[in-house]
């Protein structure tokens, strides 16, 4: 909370997943006036849309919905690729269909003149959000969290640098990392094998179970770009 207060961003890349929902809730509790930005593929099935709408209403956060289509994706793909400097971590098209969403959100944030923009980067790594982590042995989760939660690669932050807009990732702050790594892996996994249990509980405590209990949607599913796979 203190980190969010200190950074006082006026914008958030809002997917209404667990990570960004909690940031948005804390920002509102801190009295920050923030604006949400949500990019979605209008010819896909953007699973985050319903949740973004909900959070916008209950937290009274104005959200700009940014629809994109295939033509647009084709047009910006080369720029996106040059921003990440060819450092594709996953299969290229899988990375790019995620990156194009952040690229668009960050471009728009820049256009709006956002002082800085919150992202949920690091939440999955530190709090066991990825589905493959849910089946790992607890020791393996600890190793993964330490390795990737501290020194992971976050393309959205690379893109922000490339576009010269300040992105703030509260989960990657030193203090949050330190606290997160003290939480035993068993506390991160719920009884239905859902990740980020501890963050979910915090969200639920504020009364927002609709997002607090939502099923994990990978970023590309949330934005609806999972139906496309193109490379420059």
């Amino acid at each position: 909370m203190s980190y969010i207060n200190l950074s006082s961003c006026d914008c958030i890349a809002l997917s209404a997943g667990i990570d960004t929902s909690l940031i948005a809730i804390i920002a509102k509790l801190s009295g920050l006036r923030i604006r949400g930005l949500y990019t979605f593929f209008k010819d896909g099935i953007p699973r985050d849309l319903v949740y973004v709408n909900y959070l916008s209403k209950v937290l009274n956060i104005p959200v700009t919905f940014i629809p994109i289509d295939l033509e647009y994706v084709k047009n910006v793909l080369r720029d996106v690729y040059s921003c990440i400097d060819g450092k594709a971590y996953h299969e290229l098209c899988i990375e790019l269909r995620n990156d194009v969403v952040f690229y668009t959100t960050l471009m728009k944030a820049k256009e709006f003149g956002c002082k800085c923009i919150y992202t949920g980067s690091g939440g999955d790594e530190l709090f066991a959000g990825y589905s493959f982590m849910l089946w790992l042995h607890e020791n393996e989760i600890e190793v993964y969290r330490e390795k990737w939660g501290i020194s992971g690669r976050y393309p959205e932050l690379e893109i922000a640098n490339c576009l010269d807009i300040k992105a703030v990732a509260p989960y990657l702050s030193k203090k949050v990392q330190e606290i997160a790594l003290q939480i035993p892996a068993k506390c991160l996994r719920g009884e239905c094998f859902e990740g980020k249990r501890i963050l979910r509980n915090i969200i639920n405590k504020f009364g927002y179970e609709f997002v607090g209990e939502r099923i994990k949607a990978p970023a590309e599913a949330g934005a609806g770009t999972d139906s496309i796979c193109i490379t420059p």
Partner: peptide, 17 residues
């Protein structure tokens, strides 16, 4: 896509709960 398709994750979750 209908709202119910967008919301399929929550639909599954609600019934399971």
């Amino acid at each position: 896509p209908s709202p119910h398709v967008l919301n399929i994750g929550k639909t599954i979750e609600t019934h399971l709960k």
